[in-house]
Simulated assay, not measured.
Amino acid sequence: MNFGKAIEKLKSSKKVARKGWNGKGIFIELQVPDEYSKMTHPYIYIDTTELVTDNPDAPKDRVPWLASQTDMLAEDWEVVE
């Protein structure tokens, strides 16, 4: 799936990831603010809290995410359950 389709999936509350990303358990998701949020617009974040890796120093976080040109042009996006 291309990046445009991945964005459509995000907008329909799906999690997506690239097959080409290093490690399992990494995905991006769209966060839509509610009345308790400090944010006022939707934003995309990357979640690595379920990352499977042999590297004990690998970050396991949720942080805002920006697509690289490589990500935007990739055709290996998939929905993550």
Score class of each variant (00 low, 15 high):
Lys9Cys: 05
Ala58Thr: 00
Thr49Trp: 15
Val80Ala: 07
Pro33Phe: 02
Ile46Pro: 05
Val63Arg: 12
Glu35Met: 14
Val79Ala: 03
Ser12Asn: 13
Glu50Lys: 15
Ser68Met: 09
Met39Ala: 07
Gly20Met: 05
Asp76Asn: 06
Thr48Pro: 12
Asp54His: 13
Pro59Asp: 07
Pro33Arg: 01
Arg62Glu: 11
Lys19Asn: 12
Val63His: 10
Asp57His: 12
Asn2Phe: 13
Ile7Cys: 01
Ser68Cys: 02
Pro56Asp: 00
Arg18Trp: 09
Phe3Lys: 01
Pro59Glu: 14
Val52Pro: 06
Gln31Thr: 01
Thr40Leu: 01
Ser13Lys: 14
Glu8Lys: 14
Glu75Cys: 05
Lys9Glu: 09
Lys15Asp: 14
Glu29Trp: 15
Leu30Asp: 06
Gly25Asn: 06
Leu73Gly: 00
Lys60Trp: 13
Lys24Met: 09
Thr70Lys: 05
Ala17Arg: 05
Glu8Ile: 09
Lys5Thr: 14
Glu8Leu: 13
Arg62Trp: 09
Lys15Trp: 06
Gly4Lys: 08
Asp76Cys: 03
Asp61Gln: 10
Ala58Glu: 03
Ser37Trp: 06
Ile7Asn: 06
Val16Phe: 08
Lys5Phe: 10
Gln69His: 06
Val32Asn: 02
Asn55Tyr: 08
Asp54Ser: 08
Tyr43Ile: 07
Glu50Val: 15
Asp61Lys: 09
Trp65His: 08
Asp54Pro: 14
Trp77Asn: 03
Lys15Thr: 10
Ser68Trp: 04
Leu30His: 06
Pro64Trp: 10
Leu73Cys: 10
Arg62Tyr: 11
Trp21Asp: 02
Thr48Gly: 09
Asn22Ala: 12
Lys15Cys: 01
Ala74Phe: 07
Met39Tyr: 04
Glu50Asn: 09
Ile26Trp: 08
Asp61Ala: 01
Ala58Gln: 07
Glu50Met: 12
Lys14Ile: 08
Gln69Ser: 05
Gly25Gln: 00
Met39Gly: 06
Gly4Pro: 08
Lys9Gly: 10
Glu81Trp: 12
Ile7Val: 08
Ile26Gly: 03
Lys24Gly: 13
Ser12Ile: 15
Trp65Asp: 03
Glu50Pro: 15
Ala67Cys: 07
Ser13Gln: 11
Ile46Asn: 02
Asp71Trp: 06
Asn55Ser: 00
Ile46Lys: 01
Met72Tyr: 10
Leu66Lys: 04
Gln69Trp: 06
Gly25Asp: 09
Leu30Arg: 04
Tyr43Asn: 05
Gln31Tyr: 07
Phe27Gly: 02
Ile28Ser: 04
Glu29Gly: 01
Glu75Trp: 13
Val16Lys: 08
Glu8Pro: 02
Glu35Lys: 07
Lys5Asp: 14
Lys15Pro: 10
Thr53Met: 05
Lys9Gln: 13
Pro56Glu: 14
Ile44Gln: 09
Asp54Tyr: 03
Ser68Thr: 03
Asp57Cys: 10
